[in-house]
């Protein structure tokens, strides 16, 4: 983010609050509790003798970083940027939902469907909400269904138009994920739109697409389609199908899944 910089006019490190996304990484680093005057004096002396001490790069000698209490709308930066903060809308830490990670019990994406995880600002660049809105508005024109449990969907004022809360539009966050689901036939149009719009917004976009495998654990539909569209999928997150419904409190039994493969 480059939010922390040395202000040479006062010879102190400062935080550019407009660029800071409140991720909390600085406050979690290792700390010593040395006296700041002592640390500055030693550094000044070393500077005079052109001597440079090379300390551990992840230790703050004076425990200088303190997390502020943040008012709305700035608090939204922390919610989307700090991985240790839980989104109240999803109940999980992080920027998205369980996606297909729990698909073996939640059946979020079924056979013939494709889930999309469109992530903005990642890696390491950050994004402002108005950039995300540019994409959601373009996708809304295609009539997509935004995932209801996703934190960005919760911030939409009009899902049919993909518009977000106006008072958040200039807030900067580390990353955010837009999730949606379509049929396989709609994949080319969605990916084309995402690529086209990404050229107009000043950030990076990481793209993930998911599907349900068949009974033999193969994906005969989406993988070949992505190949035809020219996408290399080097890496994947694979749900191994070991989950099952175990809760007894609500009386739910194991939900039957006609496409479920045998474990062994």
């Amino acid at each position: 983010m480059g939010a922390i910089y040395v202000d040479s006019s006062v010879n102190r490190a400062k935080i550019n609050l407009d660029e800071c996304v409140e991720c909390g990484a600085c406050s979690r680093m290792s700390n010593e509790t040395l006296n700041p005057h002592l640390v500055r004096s030693v550094r000044s002396l070393a500077k005079i003798f052109r001597f440079r001490f090379e300390p551990e790069p992840d230790v703050c000698p004076t425990s200088a970083f303190v997390i502020d209490d943040l008012p709305y709308p700035r608090i939204v930066r922390r919610i989307f940027s700090d991985p240790l903060i839980e989104h109240t809308s999803t109940g999980i830490k992080g920027r998205g939902t369980e996606e297909v990670k729990t698909n073996d019990v939640a059946h979020r994406v079924s056979v013939g469907e494709v889930g999309y995880v469109i992530e903005f600002g990642r890696p390491g660049v950050g994004v402002r909400f108005h950039h995300i809105q540019t994409m959601t508005m373009a996708l809304a024109k295609l009539g997509v269904h935004f995932e209801g449990k996703n934190p960005i969907t919760h911030l939409m004022v009009d899902r049919s138009r993909g518009t977000l809360k106006e008072d958040l539009l200039h807030e900067k966050i580390l990353s955010a994920i837009v999730e949606l689901k379509t049929t396989t036939e709609e994949v080319p149009a969605i990916l084309e739109t995402v690529e086209k719009v990404s050229k107009t917004i000043d950030t990076v976009v990481a793209l993930g697409v998911s599907t349900r495998c068949d009974q033999t654990g193969n994906d005969p539909v989406l993988a070949p389609l992505l190949d035809d569209l020219g996408y290399d999928s080097e890496r994947a997150k694979t749900n191994l199908g070991l989950g099952r419904v175990t809760n007894t409190r609500n009386g739910e039994g194991n939900i039957s899944d006609e496409h479920s493969a045998s474990v062994r």
Partner: peptide, 12 residues
């Protein structure tokens, strides 16, 4: 075992 679902990374 058989894979249940898969999420592909299409990169940046």
């Amino acid at each position: 075992i058989h894979r249940h679902s898969v999420e592909y990374s299409l990169g940046f």
